[in-house]
Simulated scan of single mutants.
Amino acid sequence: MGNKIRAAIVGTGAIAEVGHLPALRAEADRVDVVAAVDVDQQRVTDFADRADIPGRYTSLSALLDREQPDLVHICTPPALHAEQASACLAAGAWVLLEKPPCLSLAEFDRIQAAERAGGPYASVVFQHRFGSGARHFADLLAAGELGRPLVAQCVTAWYRDHAYFDVPWRGRWETEGGGPTMGHGIHQMDLMLALLGEWTEVRAMAGRLDRDVRTEDVSTALVRFANGAMASVVNSLLSPRQESYLRFDLTDATVELTHLYGHSNDSWRYTPAPHVTDTDRIAAWRTPAANVSSSHTAQLPHLLDAMARGVRPPVSGVQARMTLELVTAIYRSAFTGEPVHRDQLGPDDPFYHRLHGDTPGWAGD
C-alpha cells in the first residue's frame, strides 16, 4: 500500500456522512479519502463537494478500476452488500461493511469466499464493541474480576413511526433482510455476544403488530450460551420511550449499560453483590483507563492496524458470522416454533438462504 491508505465510500446517504466520514477524518494522518460513488450523480457530487473528495462516480466498477482503493466503506442498503463487498475484495480492496452485513448467511459466506489469506478482508461495523466502557468490561470478564456470568438482558426498544417505512427498501425481506432483529437490535446483540461468547440455543417469537411491513416489527428471544449463562432479548420498533439496555448479572456484580445509539463510560453502572466489600476492587471496576465513546471513529483504527499487519481485523469472519447466526436463529425459531441450535443453520436449511425461511404468512405476502 504506500504511505497512506487510499479509501473510498460507496453510498453517500446519512450513515456515510455522520458515521464513516468523521471516522476517516480522524485518521487523516494515515488515510486519504480519494473517491465516492452513488447511483445519483447529483447526490455524489454534493457529498464529495461537502467532504472535499476528488473522485466522484456513479459506478462501483469504474471506481475500483480507476482509483484502485486500498479500503472501501460500503454504506448502501443491505441488499447490495454481498455483491459490492465481493467485488471490492476481488479487486484487492479491504472492506468496512455497514450493518447489517448482508441478507443471509449464504451471502455472508459468499463475502468470506472472496477474502484472501493476509487480506483483503471484510469487517462489519459493530462499533459498540469498541467503546472504552465495553472494552473495560470485557477485560474484567476475561480476568474473572466480576465472577461468572449467569443472566443477561438485551433490549433494543426503539421507535420508528409509520412514515419511516415509506422508504421503499425498508421493512421488506428482499431489500432490508429483516426488521428490528436484523437492522436495529443487531448492534446490542453483537455486543452481548462479544461479552458472553458463543451461543448454543435460541427460542424466539416474532410479530407484525402495528407497522405496515413485510418483516416483523418486534421479536423476543431466550438465548443459552456455551458458558451456561442465559439471556432474554427484545427487539422493538414500537417503543415510544426509546432505550438500548444491556444487563449482566454475574456472581460478584450486576453490570448495566443504558444508552440509545452510542455509549460512553458514563453509560455503564456496576453494582457489587452483597458479599463484595473491597472498595478498591469496586472502584477499579468503575474506572476505565480511557473514555472513548462507541462509534465508527472508535472502530476504524483497529481495522487500519490490521491492514498494516496483514491480519484479519476485528468483527470479521467467525466473529461477525456468529452475530448473523444469532439473528438467523431468532427468525428460524420464531417462524417454526422450535428451539434452534447453531449446527442447524447450514446450507440445507432454507433460513440459511433467506431469513424468512419461505415460511407461509411471512414470505412473499
Rank of each mutant, 00 (worst) to 15 (best):
G131R: 00
E17K: 13
D40R: 12
A157D: 12
T156V: 11
Q112E: 13
L260P: 05
P22M: 09
T279I: 12
G55H: 02
Y352V: 05
W199F: 11
L238M: 07
L260Y: 13
R172Y: 08
S295M: 04
Q188G: 14
R203L: 11
G92V: 08
M189I: 09
H296F: 15
A114M: 02
Q41V: 14
L303G: 00
V213H: 00
T220Y: 07
S132A: 11
E174L: 13
L237K: 08
A16D: 05
L260V: 15
E201C: 13
G185C: 05
Y121D: 00
P69Y: 03
L96R: 08
A114V: 01
R172I: 07
A290W: 12
T254D: 05
H184S: 13
H275W: 10
A143Q: 13
R6P: 06
A85E: 03
V234L: 15
H81I: 04
P339C: 06
D38S: 06
Y352H: 10
V233N: 01
R354F: 13
G179L: 01
S333C: 08
Q41A: 15
F165V: 07
T251E: 10
H356S: 14
A284F: 04
F248C: 01
Y164D: 13
A284E: 05
S293P: 09
G144I: 04
T359Q: 14
V39K: 11
G361I: 12
L193A: 04
I15L: 15
L80E: 13
D109C: 02
A329V: 02
A117Y: 05
H187W: 03
T12N: 07
R56W: 06
R50G: 09
A221H: 00
R50V: 08
M307V: 03
T277L: 14
L193G: 03
R241F: 12
W285G: 00
F108N: 01
L105N: 00
H73C: 15
Q68W: 08
P274S: 06
R66V: 09
H187Q: 09
A82C: 11
G118S: 01
D65A: 14
A134N: 02
M230F: 11
F108V: 02
G11C: 07
R332P: 06
G262R: 11
R214Q: 14
T76N: 03
L355C: 08
A138V: 09
H353Q: 13
L304M: 06
Q42S: 14
A204P: 06
C102A: 07
P313A: 01
R342I: 06
E17N: 13
R269W: 10
P313N: 02
E174S: 14
L193V: 06
Q319E: 15
R342W: 08
W158L: 15
G19V: 08
A363R: 12
D40Q: 12
G11I: 08
E83L: 12
T323F: 05
D252A: 09
A229I: 02
A90T: 15
A93H: 04
P240N: 08
R56H: 05
L324F: 11
A253I: 04
T271Y: 09
I186S: 10
T359D: 09
L250K: 00
R66G: 10
N227C: 10
A90Y: 10
L21D: 09
H128Q: 13
P274R: 04
W94L: 00
G357S: 10
D278F: 05
R342E: 07
F137C: 08
L326D: 02
A16G: 09
R214H: 12
W94Q: 01
G361A: 10
G147M: 05
M230V: 15
P360V: 11
A7W: 07
S264W: 13
